Amino acid sequence: MIRTATPADVPVIHTLIRELAAYEKASEEARADEEQLREALFGERPAAFAHLAVDDESGEPVGFALWFLNFSTWRGVHGIYLEDLYVRPEARGGGHGRALLTELARICVERGYERLEWSVLNWNRPAIGFYESLGARPQDEWTVYRLTDGALAALGSGR
């Protein structure tokens, strides 16, 4: 079962994000706290949205998708950028990841969005195989760039 996250879900979303960071071997980079998530997801001007995959028997969350809107200047419409998709290892293979992506695709179709995009680590072969089985294709001609920390501060201050 997939459901839209509520403010009461912030602690479990935070936990799932920490689990994802550990899986991606980047625990030290996951610095967001629960209050930041609460503000981003449910504040006065939400910047992101989340859905939870819930185990049918226990009712416990076993995965999540956290996303935000992007915009295509070429197509002239919004799309969804999937920031995080994670299903706990013990729940993988149960259709939760597919159900989360199906819900996001449904939102795209319903709202007239023309793209659902995300990034995947090059070493995550199980995820890549899963995404390709759904019809997703890598965008090999693009390379992701990122400014953070000191480089971002330097550029932002004109240095």
Rank of each mutant, 00 (worst) to 15 (best):
R92G: 06
R98T: 13
A91Q: 02
G94V: 05
L66S: 01
E60W: 13
V109S: 12
E19P: 01
G43P: 12
L121T: 07
G59H: 13
A21D: 09
T102W: 05
V77G: 04
D149I: 05
I13E: 08
L37K: 04
G150C: 04
L41A: 01
Y113G: 04
A8Y: 11
E29T: 14
L16S: 08
D33T: 08
E29M: 12
D33P: 09
R31H: 11
A48S: 05
P138L: 04
H78G: 09
F71Q: 11
A153H: 14
G93V: 05
G135H: 03
R88L: 09
A151T: 14
T6V: 15
R106N: 15
A151E: 15
L69T: 14
Y113E: 06
G150I: 07
L100Y: 07
R75D: 11
I107F: 07
W118C: 08
A40C: 13
R88W: 01
R106L: 10
P61D: 11
E19A: 13
P7C: 06
H78Q: 13
A154Y: 06
F64K: 02
K25R: 15
E24D: 00
L101P: 08
W74Q: 03
V77M: 00
D55L: 02
A99M: 08
A136T: 06
E83P: 00
L134F: 05
A153I: 14
L147G: 12
R125A: 12
E24H: 11
P89N: 03
A50Y: 05
E29S: 14
A22P: 01
P61E: 09
I2R: 02
W123T: 04
D55A: 06
I80N: 08
E28D: 15
M1Q: 10
D9I: 06
E103R: 15
G43L: 00
F71M: 11
R98I: 08
D55K: 02
M1T: 10
L147V: 10
F71H: 13
L155V: 15
P11W: 14
A22Y: 05
S133D: 02
G150M: 10
A153K: 15
I2M: 05
W142M: 07
G95P: 03
L82A: 07
G129M: 08
R137E: 12
E44Q: 10
T148G: 07
L37R: 05
L100D: 03
R31P: 01
R98C: 07
E34S: 13
E141T: 07
A21I: 11
W118T: 03
Y131A: 00
A127E: 00
R146N: 11
F130Q: 03
S27P: 11
R88P: 05
